[in-house]
Every structure is written in structure tokens, then in C-alpha cells.
Design a protein around this nucleic acid. Structure first.
Lengths: 237, 237
DNA sequence: ATGTCTTTGTGAACGCGTGCACAAAGATGG
DNA sequence: CCATCTTTGTGCACGCGTTCACAAAGACAT
């Protein structure tokens, strides 16, 4: 991965394993649903089922946060919601810029899950001057040249890239230079960033190809007629 | 994860480790770019750099596919493209239905990476009858009630869910009942599916929260003034 | 107060994934 | 034909993540 990592050995001090961090949002979502239904407590078994994970894993995950459960009873829903939110940093406000307001960028801007939990869209940016001023999700699209000032003025530390692949690296460089230290990349490219900058990527094409692999494997099991081992038309020199 | 897995121990027979499968599309993309520049061969070091991975890892990954390299020279680009494509099942055609043609669904329909590699959008479906007939990415939106017949007629095995969270499980059930065995889920919900059905999820909100966690960690290192250990307002019973 | 029953928290074992480091393989030049 | 040099393929060790299984903790009833 092109993640500019300086990730320490995952667990240092009260550091939380990366795999656990990735599941916390899942638990949080399930807990929020319970909270809205005014459910006071929940057992690891129930919550694990709601989040789609193993209950032992869930208990171990929570044990990294501290001993927040009550034996014989379960976990206090409201208390856990707070603790996980705090651990994830969702008790503070994270201004975000979205770069590239095409179909995808507009979809992201309209995505409700954004504002719901600590994330605030500070600005929508696009290289197309014709788009400037157009309202998307209630926000005006602004020209990419305003990137540096917007990032500085709003203390933006998270950038979302929804540009074509060709523009992604340049946008990344500008974001990083302006002070952004976390990037969520939707463009199908490997981004290179300096140490200390985190990159996560979301890649539709890769996901589909992984599904196709398994799909093919399933098909190959049923009707055992895979043209296996055949020498292809193209041969190495 | 709610993946209806029956995944064997990752490596059985000439089975390829899951982690390797997830990287193959990355290699394929880098190789395709090289192929378009008519580069005949590439070393593991160069290709690894282009894909953003460690070269030893790349070589080990390729070793699961077979011995396709030439020592002292590297890998034949065209040959590797073919082998990886075949392994991923991209040499055949995968019809896909996209359910939920809102902002996101439209973005997915317009995504070029779809058609480029073996994936063909068989139909766009939406529950809103008002959308029916509207052209998106050159395809007419069709009503969700046509789901079953479309899946059957086109032998669709892959479904993409871009609906609101509330509709995702019902759509999933219908897709699975109609014969779909792989699902790519963009809705922020845990899907439950029977064994034998693969689910992969793409969740913007989760990715952002993971970034926020690391961002907070970075900030907490610089200025050591985290309100750590403070007893929150909400307490357990 | 005591016993029973539920559920957490975690020690321990295991398996997968990663990266080092090197031997084997083959190309290339003399 | 031999020596040298490059690059692959992989044995090995290590660490993270997962899961099992159980002891400890506490609720609850009697």
C-alpha cells in the first residue's frame, strides 16, 4: 500500500490494533441503532450478531478500550457509544474537502453519513471552472485554485479525492502541501505520499475483480470443466 | 463480516491466498499501463514500485500463479497480463446489475473501469417508478420488479447495491433468490446472506472514521493535551 | 448470606501474511 | 565454454489477528 505509514507495532501503550480500529465503526453503527430504540444494555453475543462478527472477537476488541462491560449483564449502550466515539475521535469536528465533483463527488457530497458523525464538508472543489458556483448538496462548487486557502482557513486535515485517475496524484500533492494529512482516495491509482500522511483507498474495480475471482472458483467447482493448464496464445520470450 | 463464506483454509490445492487475490487487480492495473506503453518486460522491483508494494511480496504472490518469470530478466508483461486476467476470471464476461440509481448508482454506472475489464452492466434498477425509462450512462433505468426476470435472462451472478440502507437487505434477498451469488454492497448496513454467497462492502463512513482515528492519534502526539482518562458525562448503570 | 446462573475478560494456541536473505537459474560477455 | 552478473523463487522466522475455552466477576433469587 502507498500508505505513508509510520505505524508503530499496532499495540504500543494503550494502542489499539488496526484490525480492531477498522471494526469500531461497525460496532458504533449497531450501537447507535440500539440507542435510537432506547435499548439500555446489550450482550456481546447480541451486538456481535448485529455487527456481523464473532462475539469473542468483539469482546477482545472492547477489552482494548477498557473494561466497559458488566459480567452477567452486558454493555451499557449509551456509555459504549460515547467511549467508541471518543476513541475514534468523533467527538470533535473534522472538516473535509472533496475534490472532483463529478458523479461520484456529488454522490459523496450528498451522502448523509458524512455530516451525521463529526464530519463536515468544508468545501467542494473541481478543476472545471464551468462548475464553479453550482450548488451541490447545498454547497457551492469552488475552483481547485482555492484549495490552498480553503485548507488553511478551515484547518482541513482530511481530503477526499474523487477525480479521474490522471489528476489524483497532482491533487494529492497539493493537498499534502497545504497541510492535509489524511486522504481517502476513490481514484483508481496508487498515490505516493510522504511519511506521516495516511491514505485509504476505495476501489470499485478491485472489489469487482475479487468477486469475479471467487465467482469463477464457485463455477469451476460445480461443472469441473475448467480449461485448466492450457498454454495460452501469448507466450513469454 | 457477514460474508456468507465457505472459504477453505485459503491455500488448498493450487488455491491462492486471499491477500494475494486482493493484490492481483493492483498488479494487473500496473501491468496494463506498461503494456500500453509497449514495455516488453518488467522486473519485480519495478512492478512492485508501480503497484506500491514490497518486491518480495510481489514475487511470492506471483509464485502462487506459477513460475512465470525469467531469472536475470524479469516478467513478460503481456504474458503476465494474460495469466492474471485468467486467474481473476476476467477473460470471461460478467453481467452485473446495479440496484439503486441515485447519485451513487449513476456514478457507478458511468464508471469507466466497469466495462473495461470483463464487466458488463446488464441493467440499472430502481424502486422509483418515476425514474423508469430515464437514460443513465446510455442505459434505461428499469423498475425493481423486473429484477428477477433480468437476473434470470442474463444469467447475472454479480449484483451491486447502491440503495439506501433501509432497502439493502430486501434487495439482497431478492437478488440471492433470483440466483445472484456475489454482492458488492455500498449501503451502510450489514447484509446477511446464505452460505455460498460472497459479500464485499464499500463503506465511506467507515473509511472516514478510520482516518479520523489516526488523525486524532497524530494530533495527540504533537500537543500532548488530550483530555485523557476523563470520566465522561454518561456513566454506566 | 449463600448459591446459582449469566456474561465478561483474557490466556493460550494456531494460522495467515510479511519480509529477510539467499540459493538457484538463466542471461550476457569474453 | 566459462565466468560474472542480474533477478527470480522460496525457506524461514516473526508478528498480528482470530478463535477457543475457561476462570473470574457480578447479578439475582431464595
Amino acid at each position: 500500500m502507498a500508505t505513508g505509514r509510520s505505524h508503530r507495532p499496532a499495540t504500543r501503550g494503550r494502542g489499539i490494533p488496526e484490525a480492531t480500529v477498522a471494526r469500531l465503526p461497525l460496532y458504533l453503527r449497531a450501537l447507535t441503532a440500539l440507542s435510537e430504540r432506547s435499548v439500555p444494555t446489550v450482550s456481546s453475543e447480541e451486538l456481535a450478531a448485529a455487527a456481523g462478527v464473532n462475539s469473542a472477537k468483539l469482546r477482545k476488541d472492547f477489552s482494548y478500550l477498557g473494561s466497559y462491560g458488566t459480567r452477567g449483564v452486558g454493555y451499557d449502550v449509551e456509555y459504549l457509544v460515547y467511549q467508541i466515539s471518543r476513541e475514534l475521535g468523533l467527538t470533535q469536528d473534522w472538516p473535509v474537502v472533496i475534490v472532483g465533483i463529478g458523479n461520484l463527488g456529488a454522490a459523496l457530497a450528498n451522502y448523509g453519513g458524512f455530516a451525521s458523525r463529526g464530519f463536515r464538508v468544508a468545501a467542494l472543489l473541481d478543476a472545471d471552472a464551468g462548475l464553479a458556483g453550482r450548488l451541490v448538496a447545498g454547497l457551492p462548487v469552488r475552483h481547485i485554485d482555492e484549495l490552498e486557502s480553503i485548507v488553511a482557513d478551515n484547518q482541513v486535515s482530511i481530503g477526499v479525492i474523487a477525480t479521474p485517475a490522471g489528476a489524483a496524484q497532482e491533487v494529492t500533492d497539493r493537498l499534502v502541501a497545504a497541510g492535509v494529512t489524511s486522504i481517502l482516495n476513490f481514484a483508481p491509482t496508487v498515490l505516493s505520499v510522504p511519511d506521516g500522511v495516511d491514505v485509504r483507498k476505495v476501489d470499485l474495480s478491485i472489489e469487482l475483480q475479487i468477486l469475479a475471482f471467487h465467482e469463477q472458483r464457485k463455477a469451476g467447482e460445480d461443472d469441473r470443466q475448467e480449461p485448466d493448464g492450457d498454454v495460452p496464445a501469448v507466450m513469454p520470450a
